[in-house]
């Protein structure tokens, strides 16, 4: 299962989503800036626990959390995906 924590306005988040779309990869996206109250708080806590900081995008593939638009890392993680 793949999850992307994203900001709807962030260019790098758009690039990650486009890359996954172009490769017909199923993923769940959380637009953290558009989430409200509790949902936003929970998402922020998850991002912080995954990466130790609050920056976006964060792409979670199985147990691997990739921060930023790093195509090779995402490609690698997709191949190793169980």
């Amino acid at each position: 299962m793949i999850k992307v924590y994203s900001l709807s306005t962030c260019p790098w988040c758009k690039k990650v989503k486009k890359y996954l779309d172009d490769n017909n990869v199923e993923y769940e996206v959380v637009e953290v800036d558009l989430a409200k109250g509790e949902e936003q708080k929970k998402a922020l806590e998850e991002v912080e626990s995954l990466t130790g900081k609050r920056s976006f995008p964060v792409t979670v593939i199985d147990d691997k959390a990739i921060s930023g638009f790093k195509q090779e890392e995402i490609e690698g993680a997709l191949k190793d995906e169980k």
């Binding site: 306005t9 260019p11 758009k14 922020l44 609050r54 976006f56």
Partner: peptide, 23 residues
């Protein structure tokens, strides 16, 4: 262009040109 687009979206949604890469 992607950054300008993000800034315009931030301005529309939140009322000023906040950094599109920060929450």
């Amino acid at each position: 262009e992607l950054v300008i687009e993000g800034l315009l979206e931030k301005n529309e949604m939140f009322g000023d040109f906040y950094c599109p890469c920060r929450i």
